[in-house]
Amino acid sequence: MHIPDGYLSPSTCAIAYASAAPFWYVAMQKVKRQLHTRFVPLISVFSAFSFVIMMFNLPLPGGTTGHATGVGLAAVVLGPWAGMLAISVALAIQAVFFGDGGITAIGANCFNIAIVGSLVASLVYRLVAGTSAMGSSRRLLAAGLAGYAGINAAALITAIEFGLQPMLFRDAAGTPLYAPYPLSIAIPAMMIGHLTFAGFAEFLVSAGVVSYLQRTDPTLLAREAPGAEVSLAAASLRKLWAGLALLMILTPLGLLAVGSAWGEWAPEDFANPETRREIASASQGQAPATAPAGLQRLSTIWTAPIPDYAPPILKSAAFGYVLSAMAGTGLIILFSLVAFRRRNV
């Protein structure tokens, strides 16, 4: 799950850092405002805790053991913003001091696990738990699902990053220079393990510890469990739909259902009749005869309004990806700020 150095191209890593940075910034501001002087000790101690949790071997069914990242647990107890900071620090220490995960990939690992993982986990937790009582089994289930969804969203993003590498970075002879597998292989390979073992480990840790806290120290759950008497208002219903939409985009099942993952077709595939038939079945009989303009345009769309005399870097495809990544990041931050507006940390 922790991406090592060498699997992602430097430009992908740079984009990941650039995408993670605004989340870190917003999280830092929000958490500092909420925790005041408690910020540093709470985040540090919780990251140290997460670091140790990542080393736990959990007994899973079937006699195996597995690791969890604790991202669901962090989101459930601390909320998405403090959670993403705590997990990010733990990941950075793993990479720098213990060689677990790459140094160039810290941005990507933090983005995937700490940021996407926390946001998705927190969303699922709030949606499922609703206003159920602190000690209810519904809240327990919510915590488990939060961990499960969080880690799977992280795995999916990771798989997409892997899968994009051979599309974007090859040498003249077509040799993939980084992670070699296309989306059609990367996504199932990654998701099978996460939908089962890793997801289950994460489910266990979140639900198990929440159950422990329900019995021993429910006050620790209070900061992320708004009062039970508040009913689902219209506003939160809207949030529910927005959340479901995001989940559908992120859900690995949706992608796996499609025989061949869309988006993986390289432009030359469209010339091949065999592949076209396959694409046609996947997209309900409407295979374009030539490479869809969209695919080609995707890389040029950003360069269109840029004048010819602009430096070449502004016209490159990579720049387009950077801009789209930035735009995406902005949208997710906006969404998260709205969704987690009332009670954060």
Binding site: T37, Y212, L220
Partner: peptide, 30 residues
Amino acid sequence: AKERRAMALATVGVLMSKAFELSSDIHLAM
């Protein structure tokens, strides 16, 4: 297996309670 799991999770839970207690004491020390 079930009890082993419960044991592992209880360990994590205890650790987490300790983490919170520790962090508020460290806050005071700071």
